[in-house]
Amino acid sequence: MSKPPVNIHKVYHAHVYFDQSTLAFATELCEQAGQKFGLKVGRVHQKNVGPHTRWSCQILFTFKDFEPFIPWLDANRDGLSVLVHGVTGDDLKDHTDYAYWLGEAVEVNLEGLK
């Protein structure tokens, strides 16, 4: 079982994972997050980017956004897996020690982060 997100960092990324069948839903979810919480939403990648082994969209948020945003995201993700991690400047630790999951954990390719 994965660890639930905890608010211990200044800045975070949430990576919403999806595939062709959930593309429209994930796109709408990320757009809603940006509009509702005033968050910076990255591109909706229909390819694997960086250490992510599935299509994804990144949402950038801070510790101030954490308490309202994370419960909303968890309640509205409709089964999508979401990686939530701190942004500390240490990419390897961010994607391992500081990685939390909403839903099922997805494999992350750590090779480029070492």
Rank of each mutant, 00 (worst) to 15 (best):
residue 11 V to I: 06
residue 16 V to T: 07
residue 1 M to E: 12
residue 80 L to T: 07
residue 6 V to P: 13
residue 111 E to H: 14
residue 106 V to L: 09
residue 26 A to V: 02
residue 40 K to A: 15
residue 28 E to C: 15
residue 71 P to D: 02
residue 47 K to D: 12
residue 15 H to G: 10
residue 10 K to N: 12
residue 7 N to E: 06
residue 13 H to E: 02
residue 85 H to W: 01
residue 83 L to V: 05
residue 44 V to S: 05
residue 43 R to K: 15
residue 106 V to N: 02
residue 77 R to S: 06
residue 7 N to A: 09
residue 61 F to M: 00
residue 98 Y to H: 14
residue 52 H to M: 04
residue 65 D to K: 03
residue 15 H to I: 00
residue 67 E to W: 01
residue 39 L to H: 06
residue 99 A to M: 01
residue 104 E to A: 09
residue 26 A to W: 06
residue 105 A to N: 06
residue 72 W to V: 00
residue 25 F to W: 07
residue 51 P to I: 03
residue 81 S to K: 09
residue 9 H to G: 13
residue 7 N to M: 06
residue 51 P to C: 12
residue 50 G to D: 02
residue 9 H to V: 03
residue 13 H to L: 07
residue 45 H to S: 13
residue 64 K to T: 03
residue 108 V to F: 02
residue 111 E to I: 12
residue 75 A to C: 07
residue 18 F to H: 07
residue 31 E to D: 15
residue 1 M to K: 10
residue 26 A to Q: 04
residue 6 V to K: 09
residue 30 C to A: 15
residue 80 L to I: 13
residue 54 R to V: 08
residue 38 G to K: 15
residue 114 K to L: 09
residue 41 V to A: 10
residue 30 C to R: 00
residue 56 S to M: 15
residue 43 R to T: 14
residue 31 E to M: 11
residue 60 L to P: 01
residue 28 E to K: 15
residue 49 V to R: 04
residue 2 S to H: 14
residue 34 G to Q: 09
residue 79 G to N: 07
residue 107 E to A: 14
residue 111 E to G: 14
residue 52 H to L: 02
residue 93 K to M: 08
residue 56 S to Q: 10
residue 52 H to R: 08
residue 77 R to F: 02
residue 92 L to E: 00
residue 16 V to S: 02
residue 5 P to H: 00
residue 32 Q to K: 15
residue 79 G to Q: 10
residue 11 V to P: 00
residue 12 Y to N: 07
residue 7 N to Q: 03
residue 90 D to Q: 09
residue 23 L to A: 12
residue 58 Q to D: 09
residue 51 P to K: 01
residue 76 N to M: 11
residue 98 Y to C: 01
residue 28 E to G: 12
residue 99 A to Y: 02
residue 91 D to F: 08
residue 81 S to L: 07
residue 33 A to G: 08
residue 70 I to Q: 03
residue 11 V to M: 04
residue 85 H to S: 13
residue 91 D to R: 08
residue 22 T to H: 03
residue 73 L to H: 11
residue 23 L to K: 06
residue 50 G to P: 04
residue 73 L to I: 04
residue 64 K to C: 04
residue 46 Q to H: 10
residue 29 L to W: 01
residue 28 E to L: 13
residue 43 R to E: 15
residue 73 L to Y: 12
residue 74 D to Y: 01
residue 107 E to S: 12
residue 35 Q to Y: 14
residue 21 S to M: 04
residue 104 E to F: 09
residue 97 D to E: 11
residue 96 T to P: 10
residue 60 L to G: 00
residue 55 W to Y: 14
residue 69 F to I: 01
residue 86 G to T: 02
residue 13 H to R: 06
residue 29 L to T: 05
residue 17 Y to K: 01
residue 77 R to I: 11
residue 66 F to I: 01
